[in-house]
Simulated assay, not measured.
Amino acid sequence: MRVAIVGAGAVGRSIAGELLGNGHAVMLIEKNGSKVRAKAVPGAEWVQADACEVTALEEAQLATCDVVIAATGDDKANLVVSLLAKTEFAVNRVVARVKDPRNEWLYTEAWGVDVAVSTPRVLAALVEEAVTVGDVVRLMSFRKGAANLTEITLAEDTPWVGRALREVPLPRETVLTAILRGERVITPSPDEPLEAGDELLFVMHGDVEEELQEVLSGRPVG
């Protein structure tokens, strides 16, 4: 997979290093010449250019990229890059960093954003995931809630403990992707019995989160 990362600050370089380590081709685009440090991310292609200019992105051949990550420290720049990537270069997947949480509402499909990543929101979700039992915790949203990655830890008093997955009436547009049980990662199967403390990971529509919580807890939400 070929990935373009706009912004070669600490965040952009860290993402590039992870992707390179996973075998992907990475192009780093940075406007500030002082941040163009090829030795900082060996193996990455470096381009010094203003990614908010169409001609610069054309020269960088952005259309050849499968994914664009707008990772600058400027929300305006990230939104412009996202819009250009999607509308001018038809990039399949656009991920954008939200610098100021107050601007998160702007990071929508209208601006070409498929996934918006807000550090405060992610950290809060991880804290909730670690300490919350019996409640649905949203870990990440895709396409502004059209699909969410959510987690729920089964409480001891849930009516589904000891029963097979096939018996659980999951809401529409809800897919159980994995069960975390201790140190094990279990691929769900219809005959898998549920246990108290199981962490269930779902991909689902945001509209049915409360319904899922009611099903798995056995009581109305609120």
Score class of each variant (00 low, 15 high):
Val54Trp: 12
Thr55Asn: 11
Ala56His: 12
Leu57Val: 01
Glu58Gly: 13
Ala60Asn: 13
Ala60Asp: 12
Gln61Cys: 10
Gln61Thr: 08
Ala63Val: 13
Cys65Pro: 00
Asp66Phe: 15
Val67Asn: 05
Ile69Trp: 02
Ala70Asn: 04
Asp75Pro: 09
Asp75Arg: 09
Leu79Lys: 04
Leu84Ser: 04
Leu84Glu: 03
Ala85Gly: 10
Thr87Arg: 15
Thr87Lys: 15
Glu88Met: 13
Phe89Ala: 05
Ala90Lys: 15
Val91Ile: 15
Val91Cys: 09
Arg93Met: 06
Arg93Ile: 03
Val94Lys: 03
Val95His: 03
Ala96Ile: 06
Arg97Gly: 02
Arg97Asp: 03
Val98Glu: 10
Val98Met: 06
Lys99Glu: 11
Lys99Thr: 11
Arg102Leu: 14
Arg102Tyr: 10
Glu104Cys: 04
Leu106Ile: 09
Glu109Val: 08
Gly112Asn: 08
Gly112Lys: 07
Val113Pro: 12
Ala116Gln: 06
Val117Cys: 10
Ser118Thr: 11
Thr119Ala: 14
Arg121Asn: 13
Val122Asp: 04
Leu123Glu: 10
Ala125Glu: 01
Leu126Lys: 03
Val127Pro: 01
Ala130Asp: 10
Ala130Leu: 10
Val131Asn: 05
Val131Lys: 13
Thr132Ser: 15
Asp135Phe: 04
Val137Lys: 02
Phe142Asp: 00
Lys144Pro: 00
Gly145Asn: 11
Asn148Thr: 12
Leu149Arg: 06
Thr150Gly: 02
Glu151Gln: 15
Ile152Glu: 00
Ile152Ser: 01
Thr153His: 02
Leu154Gly: 02
Ala155Phe: 08
Glu156Asp: 14
Glu156Tyr: 09
Thr158Arg: 01
Trp160His: 02
Gly162Gln: 08
Arg163Val: 09
Ala164Gly: 08
Ala164Cys: 08
Leu165Trp: 04
Arg166Ala: 15
Arg166Leu: 13
Arg166Asp: 15
Glu167Gly: 01
Glu167Ser: 09
Pro169Ala: 04
Glu173Pro: 01
Glu173Lys: 15
Thr174Cys: 06
Thr174Gln: 01
Thr174Ala: 06
Val175Phe: 11
Val175Gln: 05
Leu176Trp: 00
Leu176Arg: 00
Arg181Cys: 10
Glu183Gln: 13
Glu183Ser: 14
Ile186Cys: 12
Pro188Asp: 11
Ser189Arg: 14
Pro190Ala: 10
Asp191Cys: 00
Pro193Leu: 04
Leu194Lys: 08
